[in-house]
Design a protein around this nucleic acid. Structure first.
Lengths: 211, 211
DNA sequence: ACCAGCCTACTTACCAGTAGGTAGGCTGAT
DNA sequence: ATCAGCCTACCTACTGGTAAGTAGGCTGGT
């Protein structure tokens, strides 16, 4: 995968060459990082170049230097999200003891993310402003959805094949049911607390295993 | 329930008294109606007083006359949503032939709303800008959530009691699972089309009935 | 060793347009 | 005479975006 925000690979050079230079810790990366936080808190329309500039102590124009249009920043955030998912999911794959445990780890990560850090899943965050998003970002969001759905579908399929989950079910429909429930519960948790989240996931486990 | 946007009940009078007066068809109501459309398309932060004024052919200041602050409009939209749910759900209650049929009608209405009219559920719409919403609106949204969840919970409870749904399940967790799945699927349908929606709901039906 | 030329990173100073909101005045129906 | 309903005109703050310029590092030719 070609990372959009690394198309200018000089970044690597400056970082290694001027190792002693501590004052510049890669402004570009910091912009993406802060934007990712803001995205997950308020959506893509929910933060501005002014917000970023104030947070980093630079000017608005300087942010525009790194990301000329906001759509450029949006695409960089899609790359960031792709990375975030790849890292997370491969981590689950490597450590989980069963297919259900993979889903458990996914849920636990989502819960920590939502309830402790008060953030949304970055994909859901994009959905907040979907109608106002440029097409190029919509396409990327769709691809991110598919990436996530494919992973969960594979887990469901393997779980069914190994008699871990109830048989005769559509693994893709099961996967979407899981993801929707999970993300819906995350939304609700922001207003209603985590009790409903736990209940819902317990219920899903019951339905998935004992059919 | 005292309706916020009817606290000025003169509205009724102008409508009946000046029946011949066709030019003024209740501006206040029109503002709420258009705002409700915009809310369900882009969220509460996704439309402005300027949008409303342009759509109705009046000035921005004139909109402010009816709703001095945007939070006033927001609360009126909460009332509108409450009405919308009360009407819809009591309609389902009156006509449904079974508990599952109630859920079917709910899903069908949601689908029509989402796929034909390209709108979100108004509650979900508020969630898009949750962090930027004033507390007074957050409270109302929470109450709206509870109202909806209570209805679905009652349907689940009755379905379990009448052996329509699988026994030994937590009706409230079942209800939240249903609502989350439904709303999640609605979100996804905006980018991915309705196939996944149908699959997911079919899967839910299977899990609900044959456990 | 020098320096021109180019690069990144950042600045100040703008732009038009929009956000929510306000003050005060006109009009027409009761 | 009152007052809802609407207007013009205005405000401050902010939106994404641009133009022009500066400081300093890197590189290649002489």
């Amino acid at each position: 995968m070609q990372l959009y925000y690394l198309h200018a690979d000089y970044q690597m050079n400056t970082k290694t060459v001027t190792a002693a230079n501590t004052k510049l810790i890669n402004t570009r990366q910091q912009i993406v990082e802060y934007s990712a936080d803001m995205l997950r808190a308020n959506g893509f329309e929910g933060f501005s170049y002014l917000d970023i500039s104030r947070h980093l102590g630079i000017t608005k124009a300087s942010v525009h230097h790194h990301f000329p249009k906001k759509v450029d920043l949006g695409l960089a955030l899609c790359d960031w999200t792709q990375d975030w998912f790849e890292q997370g999911l491969s981590h689950f794959d490597a450590r989980a003891t069963s297919n259900w445990n993979k889903l458990e780890r996914y849920v636990r990560a989502a819960m920590k993310h939502s309830l402790n850090e008060h953030k949304l899943c970055p994909i859901s965050a994009f959905y907040s402003d979907l109608n106002k998003l440029p097409d190029s970002i919509k396409e990327r969001v769709k691809a991110l959805d598919d990436y996530e759905l494919d992973w969960v579908t594979a887990v469901m399929q393997d779980g069914i094949d190994n008699d871990e989950f109830a048989p005769n079910q559509d693994p893709r429909a099961l996967a979407s049911l899981f993801i929707f429930s999970c993300k819906g519960a995350l939304y609700y948790a922001r207003l209603h607390g985590k009790d409903l989240f736990h209940q819902t996931m317990k219920q899903f486990e019951h339905l998935l295993k004992s059919s």
